[in-house]
Each structure stands twice: as C-alpha cells, then as structure tokens.
Write a protein that binds this DNA or RNA. Structure first.
Length: 880
RNA sequence: GGAAGUUUAGCUCAGCUGGGAGAGCAUCUGCCCUACAAGCAGAGGGUCAUAGGUUCGAGCCCUAUAACUUCCACCA
C-alpha cells in the first residue's frame, strides 16, 4: 500500500513515526551473517547523564551516514551504542545535587552513596539515548552497553589483574596532579594549563654558619614549608664553595642542606632552587637522587598541614602565601618581588588550580604498551583520516609517561586490590573475587578505597562491548571494528588508549580507520561552551527544521578534521533543499500513470533521457567513491548538485512538454523520472534518512520486497550500460544553447512568458529539430525553424554557440548599436580564448612534455573557439 | 620552547593525484511559468595571504615571511 505524500514538507509530521517503524521492524539489528562481510562502529559513549550537544550531533551524523551506506551496500553493519559512567563528572553532579539537601557523601558512607548514585543514574541517565533517536541514529539498541554494566566491569577487572600480573601496573609514590576541590588525583591530560600573572619572589635563605645568605627565587613561597634542600648546578662557580653547607629555612627552625644537581639551570633566576620534593615533579626526582625527605605540607583541601605548618597551619595555600610573604618581608629576608607570567595547571573538570603532590597511587607502566601502538600506526596498518593527526598521536606515544589511574572518588570501578592489615605480612592481593581474609596469613584485609580513571574503562570499549574476555559470537565476527569516528579533542584521552589496550589485550588493533572530525563552532568561530552560553541546541534545531536539515547542515562542506561554523542560514538552506526534493517527488507523483509499478527503462530512449541517465550514473560513481574515502562532505555536495542543477532544474522541466504530449515519450519520461528519483533517494538516504524514507514509501515500487523501507534497499551501482558519452555531449549543446538564449532574453528584458520566433542555423539539424519542444518550453521559442543556412533580418539578436547561430527577431526591442557592441564584446572575449589556447599550443615545451590527451583537449577547445569566432564575425558583418 | 592547521568572491566554505577559479548566502535585474516564493531565470563580484623557487604549466609541490587558530611541553 503506497503512502500519500503530504502537500507540504513538514518533517515533524513523520520523523518520529518513521523512527518508530524502523525500530519496530528491527532494521537496526545487526544479524550476524557469515555470508556477509562485517562492518562495525562502536559509538563514542556519551556521558550517561549528559545532554545531546552539537558535537554529539556531528559525531552521530557522520557515523550514521557510514553505517547506513555500508548496510545498503550489503555489509552486515553493526553500530554499537552505549554510555559512559564519566566518573568524576557524574560524581560531581551527584554531590552537588546532594549538597542542596545538605547531605555530603561522607554522611552517607560509601555504600549509601553508591546506592544513591545508581538511583540518580536511573532517574537522569539515558535521556541522551532518546535524543539520539531524534537524530535518526540507526544504531543497534539491542546491544546497548554501559561502562559500568556487568560485562564491561568484568573486562575492566580482568585487564587490571592481567596488567598487574605482567608487572605493567604498580602502586607507588609519585607526583600526581591533585585537585583540592574534587579531592582526587587526576592524570596529566586531565590537567589544563593556563597562563596566569604571578610573581617571582626573591628570598634570602641565611647560611646556617652565619656567613651570609643564599638568594633563591620562587613563584610559590608557601611551599617553603616543604623544602628539604636548596640546589645549585655542580659547575656553577658562584656557589661552588657553599655546596654541602646548610641554610636556615626561613620562618621555621629547620636547617636544610645545599646540594648540587644538574637539573638546576644556571642561567635562570639566581641559579639557586629550593627543592620541595612533595610538591614539584622535578624536585621529587632531585629528592630521590639525593635521598631527601618528602615533606608533605598540605592537606587534601590545600590547607597547610598541622605540624609542619607552624603558625600557618590550617590556612588556605593562598592565604598562607600572603602571610608568609609579609612575614619574610618583616624579617628582612624578602629581597624583591618581580611580576612573572607562568603557566598554572588547572583541573579540566572544575578549573581549580591543581596541586602537584607526592602521593601513593596506582600507575600503568606505559613504555612497553606504547611501542606496538606506535608501530601499528607507523606501518599504516591503522590509519588516521586525515593523516596529519598521526603526528600528534605519535609524539604523545613516543614521549609517554606513566598513567595515574587511581581516583579518590567512589563512582566508578573499584580497584581490586586488598591490603593485609597484619603489618608483619603486608601482603597485597589483586583478585577478581571479593575477599575478607589475607590468603597468605589469614588476617583481615581492606580493599583499596580508590576507583579507576574513567578512561581506563573507555579504553576497552571496542572489545569490552563485544563480550571480551569471552569469545562471543559478536566478538569473533565484529572485532576488530572497522571505523572509529571521533573529534580530534579526544585522540590522546581515548583513541590512543584504545589502541594500546586493544593491541595488548586482544592482540589486534581495535579498529582500522580513525575518522577524525573537528569542532562545531559558533557563528563567530568560538567554541560552543556553557559559560559563554553560545551553544546551539540540536533538539531545538530538529524541532524547528527537522533532523534531516540538521544532518545535512552538519555534513555539508565538512572536511575531515576541520572545524566548522554553525550558522542558522546553513540550516535554512538545508531545509530548503529538503523542501525542493519533496516537491520534486510531488511533481513526479502527480504525473504518473495510475497503474505504474516500478520503474522500467524502455529499450529505446530519447537523447535527453540518455543525457540525464549518463549524468546520474556518473553521480552514483562519485558519491560512492567519496563515501568510501570518507569525503562525506564532497559526496553530499556532488549529490545535491546533481539533484538540484541537473535533475530538478533541467530534467524535470524537460519532461513537462513530453508529459503534456502523452504517449510513448511521456511514458519513457515517467519511467526515467521514477528510476532516477529512486536512485537519488537511495544515495541521499544515509545523509537524510527520514525524508528519503517518507518519499520512498510513496513511490511506485518494483515489487522486489524492498519497498517496505529504503533502509534495507540496495545501494545503486555504477552501470556501464547507462553511460552515454555521445548523447551526454550532444544534448549538452542544447542545454548550452537554451542557457545562452535565456541570457539574451534576460538582458533584453524580454519577459519569459513572451514567445519569440527563433531561427537556428546549424549543421546538426536533426539534434536541434528534435529539441524543438524544449526550446519552446524552456527558452520561450514560438516559431522555431532549423536550417543549414539562414539569412537573418537586421532586427535580430544573434545567439552564438560553437554549434549554432540562433537568430531571434525582436523588432523594435533590438537596439542595433547595443547589439553590435555586445557582439564586439563577445568577439574580444572569444579572441582572448583563442590567443591563450594558440599560445599554449605553439609552446614547444608544452607540446613536448604535456600528456597527449591534454594536448588533444586543448586543440579541441581551440577548434571550438575558432568555430564560434567565425560565426560571431559573420554576425557582426551582417549587422553592419 | 616544539608541532600542526588556516589564509580562495562582501560572508561561510568546497576545490580529490598540478592542465584556463567553484557553491551557498548576501547584492542587483526580471519573473506568482499548475512540483517548489522554503521558488524560477539571469547578472555582477577573486593579483587563490606575501616573496622567491621547481615545472611546458602552480590555488595545488618546495623554501622563507606574516597574520590568525589549535595542540603538546613547561625552568624554580
């Protein structure tokens, strides 16, 4: 039963309905079929409590285009959706929600909090999945996963234990980035640096023996409380004789040694550095080399510690800084204060200035894991599109540092480490099973309080979601996945970690291609952000323009890796294009024979049909090729150009006189119209799934069973039989001639409705005669005569193409002088062409070195120009 | 400090392996022609950032420069 197509394009009226139909018919389900080739994409999991934003919309659109394309091409296409527990982001949300009730997580305790978090998750989580549905995403919801579901959690535990057993995970005291607000460690890449105005304080540290003082410079005077030495360069002549002596640490009663270490830059500052091993990564290393004590002088909320802090204990770090600078000044130890710009690390999540702190944490040893991940990209086995993103990836991998994976929060995968409470034993057991007693000594054990970095679980996403470590059917069939689509902003966070994890745990690369896209920026080119309030809500756009318009906007002009600007006029254009397609199909449907079943191309086709079929066929080829090479923006551009410029603007107009005429020519036109429309709908379906489906279901079908949904119909194939180069060229001449006539009519202000007489002088009488109805319909020809030799009246406008002179007697409308001037102008423009081409063709270098086809091409162009020139000259002659 | 990207029409951007510069919007002109005014037919508008180089031929390849953007590293 064919659907009636509504009179106006109103996406709201059918998008949701169509999505429901797809879901009800299970079209998204990837049914493993050994006869088919698999194609799989795992969706970058959005935060479980997140909201759909433009970045997601772009990501979604690109993936859906690929998946729908491959599905139609006959692959068994799986797009696996899911969500991420987003440890820190989610916990922060929950905590702040609790804060409004006046409850802290410590009030509830760990178990109470987790209960609450899951409840919160059930209530607010998953909203994004409904929003993704609005986009038309054809992902397989039956395989929906969550990073904290049972299977993914099992994979996480297994990976942790495996890595531990291989010695690639260790626990140790290192300098990590501590966020005093989130009260957890964060990894290096979760730390963002921003330039801040600060000061360089020069402070005198008096020598303990009273023989003077050493001047140091610091940007963080409060950390003085944690100093365990001061250091100079071993070759620094200035300080050679004080090495080994002690200084009195100001504001305290401690004495600390002066050491020599190559780390110190003699040129910088005073050449003397205070060493604070607990609060600076370099100092920590120096401290290890010189066996210095690590003095923690701050609490986890960045207040000064009791004991080491003296009178400053309990103060906030900045408060303490102020107080200490004042006290140093009072003591006469402050030499000077210089303004100084420096980069300060801040927490990616909350923006708080991080405190580098020596802390006992879990780390992944990265060097060994990185090597295969480097090799797989260098060898080209795994490629980035565009390739330039490989640089950043490789640089990061080659300079990788150990990854701090423990987090002092509760929402996440708890570290499966148990510490024996018997000090004599001190055993650490890493195990999947929950244990209470130490397997070595039987004493009580305590599980590590920490959870894992959220990226630790996302790193396993391409295989944990397919059932790994079990050898499930999904895993066997779909892994490694085919393409990963994501933004360049998370290459290091996520893509790189999936690559080394996949290689290490499955022995295979997790995917073959990484398609990188850019950011969607606002109209002024700024990042869309909450704080600027410049974000555009995709749901609002869908509501106003439809999901298809949104998708088309996001993919049009989209080049891999490049950012794009969002403007509402772009969406309007997209919507207008959809409207055009809608109306084109209405035209077809209004002009079909009642009983038409499917499109059958007749054996005998008129030239204009061959012309359009040939161009359509070429479009199939380029669209397919561009989709295959991930040039989605180019593909859609080619397609839309064909639909608008060839199919709608020309071909549909060409069919009007034929349909009016009726009979065989009408029937051929009707079949070609439907044939190409169905092809267009299929080619366009990955980009604009809803409108193409809605139109598809109202088109005559071929009864082969695909009529139910365009989703499951076959991708159009390039067909050598539809290639008509000769007809394409010949009829192109008619199109050119009609265009040239239109220009003249427009310039002479002849209204389109006015029929005018035309006299065509051409050697190809047959061609122009056969096109007479088109000149009438499209160029406003009244009387239309084709002849080999014409004598034009003096009051004619002459339209010259390379194959014909067309005389249009316009009587008093023709200003002889103006017409002559116009012809002169045309003459000089054609003369320029001739000059250019003959210069090129008389260049010996060109003739000797250019490819033969190129030379032939230029010769043909010259010939054409010369023919045109001849005709222009005759016309000018006649005018005079 | 290191690296990458961008620079093409008034605006937003295409331009795939080098062969006489493209689209949409905006502007201007003319059209309500029974698919579409969310439209149709036309027009104008560009030293392809600058300077060199390679080539028969450069928007495209090479070198340098400038401006903008981004990423990475971070010396107290």
């Amino acid at each position: 039963m064919k659907k009636e197509l509504a009179k106006t394009y109103s996406p709201k009226d059918f998008e949701d309905r169509i999505y429901r139909e797809w879901e009800e018919n299970n079209y998204f389900y990837a049914d493993i079929d050994p006869k088919k080739k698999p194609y799989s994409i795992v969706m970058p999991p959005p935060n479980i409590t997140g909201q759909l934003h433009m970045g997601h919309a772009l990501d979604c659109t690109l993936q859906d285009i690929l998946i729908r394309f491959k599905r139609m091409q006959g692959y068994c296409a799986l797009w696996l959706p899911g969500t991420d527990h987003a440890a820190l982001a989610t916990e922060a949300k929950i905590v702040s929600a609790m804060k409004e009730e006046g409850v802290t997580k410590y009030d509830l305790g760990r178990d109470g909090f987790m209960e609450r978090a899951w409840a919160w998750n059930d209530k607010y989580g998953g909203r994004i999945k409904e929003q993704q549905r609005k986009m038309g995403t054809s992902c397989d919801w039956s395989r929906d996963r969550f990073t904290m579901d049972e299977g993914c959690s099992k994979a996480v535990q297994k990976v942790f234990i495996d890595l531990y057993e291989k010695g690639l995970i260790y626990r140790g005291e290192r300098i990590i980035n501590w966020c005093p607000n989130c009260k957890t460690s964060i990894s290096d890449i979760e730390t963002e640096y921003e330039e801040q105005d600060g000061f360089f304080w020069h402070i005198n540290y008096p020598l303990a023996d009273g023989t003077g003082a050493v001047e140091i410079a610091t940007t963080r005077p409060e950390t003085l409380l944690g100093d365990s030495a001061i250091a100079v360069h071993p070759d620094d002549e200035r300080y050679k004789d004080i090495v080994g002596k002690y200084v009195k640490l100001p504001l305290t009663d401690r004495e600390i040694p002066i050491i020599a270490d190559e780390y110190v830059d003699m040129e910088f500052g005073t050449g003397v550095v205070k060493i604070t091993p607990a609060h600076d990564p370099n100092d920590f290393e120096v401290g290890k080399r010189h066996d210095l004590p690590v003095i923690h002088m701050m609490n986890d909320d960045a207040t000064i510690k009791q004991g080491v802090g003296g009178k400053y204990a309990g103060m906030d770090r900045y408060e303490a800084r102020k107080a200490m600078v004042a006290d140093l000044e009072a003591a006469g130890l402050l030499v000077k204060t210089e303004p100084h710009k420096h980069n300060v690390g801040t927490c990616q999540r909350c923006g708080t200035t991080v405190e580098p702190t020596a802390s006992l944490q879990w780390f992944v040893k990265m060097k060994e894991l990185a090597q295969p991940a480097i090799d797989v990209v260098k060898s080209g086995e795994l490629r980035f599109i565009p390739q330039r993103f490989e640089n950043g990836y490789l640089y990061w991998m080659e300079n990788i540092r150990d990854w701090c994976i423990s987090r002092q929060i509760w929402w996440g995968h708890r570290i499966p480490a148990y510490y024996c409470q018997n000090k004599e034993c001190g055993h650490t057991e890493i195990t999947l099973e929950h244990i209470d007693k130490c397997p070595k000594c039987g004493a009580a054990v305590l599980q590590d309080e920490d959870t894992l970095d959220t990226w630790f679980s996302s790193a396993l996403w391409p295989f944990s979601t397919l059932g790994w470590p079990e050898k499930t059917a999904d895993y066997e069939y779909f892994y490694p996945t085919s393409t990963l689509v994501t933004g360049y902003d998370i290459i290091t966070f996520w893509v790189s970690r999936m690559i080394f994890s996949g290689l290490e745990h499955t022995g295979k690369k997790p995917f073959s291609d990484v398609l990188i896209h850019g950011l969607v920026r606002d109209e002024q080119g700024r990042k869309m952000s909450k704080s600027l309030g410049n974000g555009v809500d995709p749901l609002d756009i869908i509501d106003r323009f439809g999901a298809d318009a949104l998708r088309l906007t996001l993919v049009t002009g989209n080049a891999p890796g490049n950012d794009m600007r969002w403007t509402e006029t772009k969406v309007t254009n997209s919507r207008n294009f959809a409207n055009k397609l809608w109306n084109a199909s209405r035209y077809i449907l209004l002009n079909l024979p009642e009983d038409m079943a499917g499109a059958k191309l007749p054996d005998e086709l008129p030239i204009e049909d061959k012309w359009v079929l040939s161009l359509y066929n070429a479009t199939v080829k380029t669209v397919t090729a561009n989709l295959e090479s991930y040039e989605l923006g180019v593909a859609v551009q080619n397609l839309c150009d064909f639909i608008r410029d060839i199919y709608c603007d020309w071909y549909i107009e060409l069919t009007k006189p034929r349909i009016a005429q009726g009979g065989a020519t009408a029937l051929a036109a009707q079949n070609v119209l439907v044939y190409i429309m169905q092809g267009i709908l299929k080619l366009l379906h990955p980009f604009m799934p809803f409108i193409t489906e809605e139109i598809w279901q109202s088109m005559p079908t071929d009864g082969e069973g695909n009529e139910k949904s365009i989703m499951i119909s076959a991708w159009p194939e390039y067909d050598e039989k539809l290639n008509y180069p000769a007809e394409q060229e010949s009829f192109g001449k008619i199109v050119d001639a009609i265009g040239a006539i239109r220009v003249q009519r427009s310039e002479m202000n002849v209204p389109p409705s006015k029929k005018v007489t035309m006299l065509v002088e051409t050697e190809d009488k047959e061609l122009f005669n056969s096109a007479a109805p088109f000149f009438a319909a499209l160029a406003g020809a009244g009387e239309f005569t084709v002849t080999e030799k014409a004598e034009a009246s003096a009051d004619s406008v002459t339209v010259v193409t390379s194959d014909a002179r067309i005389f249009i007697p316009l009587g008093e409308l023709v200003d002889k002088q103006k017409e002559l001037a116009r012809l002169e102008k045309e003459r000089s423009s054609v003369q320029k062409d001739i000059d250019f081409l003959s210069a090129k063709l008389s260049n010996p270098g060109f003739l000797a070195k250019a490819p033969a086809a190129q030379i032939e091409n230029e010769r043909a162009k010259l010939k054409k120009a010369q023919e045109q020139m001849e005709k222009i000259l005759i016309s000018i002659d006649k005018m005079k």
